[in-house]
Design a protein around this nucleic acid. Structure first.
Lengths: 158, 158
DNA sequence: GTCACTGCAAAAGGTTTGCAACGGA
DNA sequence: TCCGTTGCAAACCTTTTGCAGTGAC
């Protein structure tokens, strides 16, 4: 039943590949590649931790030619809906976005530095089957996110 | 290694027990039991789906003697921090609260009617160990939520 | 009587919207 | 040229805050 028995770790985001992926996705969908949009995605790949919409806008404002607030929000929405941006739920409630490739992924978040790693294959089949049997629910989806300390942050103080 | 091999399903929320639990928790912590707070928790147990702060305030306003907005928000914060209210992440991004008993729980949300069931014991030890080994992270916590259709909603149209 | 709690009203913060001008394809 | 995109500014919605009065214990 489970064809995917091992969790497969994703390599850290290749920013060049991500930028290219977004550009060609835009092209394929007939969306226009404009200066403001490019500035948005270039700033996104510069982050090493989840970011918020307002933070992205503020950072863009610190440079010349910042896009308007509306453009930033609209571009984020687009990327999120097409799967190029994942929503991250912080361990303490904050929300943020992280660049990723479209597909079913889970995230592992460092609670110290914010670094995020992705993995797919979560082996929940057994649990889901049991829950379904016990509750009568038909389980259709799930949200799984892990929190911890990355290798670099394990030996540092809080 | 895994001492907890079966997921244990929680019975549906016993509203009387929840109300009593909250009251005695307040008492134990030296918090005062006031009219406005009681009106808040009584409205909370009347819900059958996750609710937002503003929705709770609005519903309270529809009756006499509604607490002020600040009181509603402050009471929600308190209940959330002490574990009597769980944050629910909707399948499509909306956030909400659901009454629950303090402890480590996961939630199963009906995407049609919003009904929420809780369970504990998620058997993730193996997955967590593998991820830890592959990434060098020390995994310290996780967020797991399931989405599906409850027994009542399975045979109804979208 | 004391001190935590409350309500109000204002401020703060984040996000969305309408619309005229702009500019990729 | 055409139509999607942009920027602006205002509107909107949710949440937070300060403070004087109130009320639980």
């Amino acid at each position: 039943m489970a064809t995917n028995t091992a969790a497969s770790l994703q390599p850290p985001l290749d920013t060049q590949a991500w930028l290219n992926g977004v550009r060609s996705a835009w092209q394929r969908s007939g969306l226009r590649i404009t200066g403001p949009r490019l500035r948005v995605i270039e700033t996104i790949v510069s982050y090493h931790a989840p970011f918020s919409a307002e933070q992205l806008y503020t950072d863009l404002c610190a440079h010349n030619e910042a896009p308007g607030r509306a453009t930033v929000y609209r571009t984020i929405d687009q990327l999120h809906e097409s799967g190029w941006l994942a929503r991250i739920h912080g361990a303490t409630g904050e929300e943020g976005y992280v660049p990723c490739h479209p597909g079913h992924l889970h995230h592992l978040v460092c609670t110290k530095c914010g670094q995020v790693m992705s993995f797919e294959g979560c082996n929940l089949e057994e649990l889901l089957a049991r829950i379904a049997a016990e509750t009568g629910f038909s389980v259709e989806g799930h949200l799984l996110q892990l929190f911890g300390r990355c290798a670099n942050c394990q030996n540092t103080l809080p």
